[in-house]
């Protein structure tokens, strides 16, 4: 009996050593966000201390273009993107999984033109500044479709979001597909809205896309991020004024303007997120297929791809405030 005890002890030692051999380095979830008001609650969550610093790091970037570039190279693990941007990244070969819906654009994304262009039809043969890989392109094609114009009917100029205002001011473009806060600033320069996202509901959706290869490795960090976001949303509801002030600073706008901006957005609550991801197929999956089909039709996607694992609803379902 004693020999058996020794044997058990001796057998336990290599097992113990094996388990302690592999050191799991602490992972840091790097999340790219730009200055889109729809993403701002997550920045608010960081500033309120809802995000553990050693687990989640927000990388504030000028635009989604940088987010996509860094996400594809793996320097970011997740990013706040529009759904079409996410599909585009997937189409380019980087597997992403959507874990959270930030907002639905309900007028926040606009096609603005100089005062001389009165309608969409006036855009024929004019220069339109568009982020070709972003939501701008999506809204641009939606707008063209509405007046039955083709890409060739207008002169498309690629302008990143952070350069749109300057390009408009320099006269490099006659119209520009943009969003807040550029929208407000362009408005001050005389530009007016010819088309906005409220005319194509559910077309422009902002989501949290996570590199699929990081999904399992950083499951806890992702959860902390989603939970922090949910807490910030709760904080926004409870302390609207204060939260607006905090967010306006980063967005370099005023609380008043920010409130106006949010009127052009639908920010789904946590329960709405859960509902959006629930079902088989879920509403989100159905919506994604619709956008995928549209983008494919517009030639925005290079290849066929599977959307069977596009969502992971477990994080929003796990959050319990």
């Amino acid at each position: 009996m004693k020999h058996f005890a020794y044997a058990k002890f001796l057998a336990f030692i290599p097992l113990f050593l094996l388990t302690t051999c592999t050191i799991e380095p602490p992972e840091l979830l790097k999340v790219g966000v730009n200055q889109w008001p729809g993403y701002e609650p997550i920045v608010l969550a960081r500033d309120l201390g809802y995000l553990p610093q050693k687990q989640v790091k927000l990388v504030e970037l000028p635009s989604n273009t940088e987010s996509i570039a860094l996400l594809r190279t793996g320097r970011l693990d997740a990013a706040a993107l529009t759904l079409d941007e996410a599909l585009n990244v997937i189409n380019l070969g980087t597997e992403l999984t959507i874990v959270l819906v930030f907002d639905f654009s309900n007028g926040a994304d606009v096609l603005m033109a100089k005062p001389s262009l009165k309608s969409l039809a006036d855009m024929r043969h004019h220069r339109v500044g568009v982020e070709t890989t972003g939501v701008g392109a999506l809204l641009f094609h939606a707008a063209l479709s509405q007046v039955k114009l083709e890409d060739d009917d207008v002169q498309v100029v690629y302008v990143p979001a952070d350069e749109q205002e300057a390009a408009y001011m320099r006269g490099q473009v006659d119209a520009v597909v943009t969003f807040e806060p550029i929208k407000s600033r362009l408005k001050q320069h005389g530009a007016h809205v010819l088309f906005d996202s409220s005319e194509v509901p559910d077309l422009i959706v902002d989501v949290l896309a996570v590199r699929t290869d990081q999904l399992e490795k950083q499951r806890e960090n992702i959860f902390q991020l989603v939970q922090g976001y949910a807490k910030a949303r709760s904080y926004m509801t409870q302390y609207t004024k204060k939260s607006m002030q905090m967010m306006a600073v980063r967005l370099q706008t005023t609380s008043h303007d920010l409130k106006q901006i949010y009127q052009g957005l639908i920010l789904p609550s946590l329960s709405e997120n859960v509902a959006y991801f629930s079902g088989s197929p879920s509403k989100f999956e159905r919506h994604t297929h619709k956008i995928y089909d549209f983008m494919k039709h517009q030639g925005m996607l290079q290849r066929e791809m599977s959307l069977s694992h596009i969502q992971d609803e477990s994080f929003v379902m796990r959050v319990n405030l």
């Binding site: 790097k30 790091k57 990388v59 504030e60 970037l61 000028p62 940088e66």
Partner: peptide
């Protein structure tokens, strides 16, 4: 942009 990207 350079500074922001460096934060990655």
């Amino acid at each position: 942009r350079f500074v922001a990207v460096a934060a990655a």
